[in-house]
Amino acid sequence: MTVVLAVCVAVTFGVSIYMMLGRELMGLAIGVFLIGHAANLSILAMSGSPVIQHDKAYQTAEFKIPPVLESDQQAKDWSEAQLIKAEHPEQDVVNPLDEMVDPLPQALILTAIVIGFAVMGFLLTLIVLTQRRAKTLDVNELAKMDLPTPSQAH
């Protein structure tokens, strides 16, 4: 699964870089939008595989549980196991992250999505205003505006 995500990250990132190198600002905005997906998928990969690896055969895909506790007891069991492990490091106990996907990357992604949305909204408005003031969205045209003029005196 990680490989799939990594390929997705590579493709979305690469395409958005391609878009961001374009000449038209709206295309750049699309690149920005897409690069957000790349970032999110990349962080998502950090939560590890969502599939429990019981054996090497992968005959049946058994998912880990989503990060919502099913019962009060579940967390307690994990805690106890960890305490045991703290005292007896050699003992093999259940790691909660073997049964449940890591919730932290998800929280990070949520933050990133919201921030990405905020920036996107602003950027789109900015593009509208740029079009109104500068009468163009062509990056090359915009580059010619307001370059420093050569000085007459020195």
Binding site: V114, F117, A118, G121, L124, T125, V128
Partner: peptide, 13 residues
């Protein structure tokens, strides 16, 4: 905040 921002942006545009 979320309602205000997203509705505000859409409304403005």
């Amino acid at each position: 905040v979320v309602i205000g921002v997203s509705v505000g942006m859409i409304d403005r545009l």
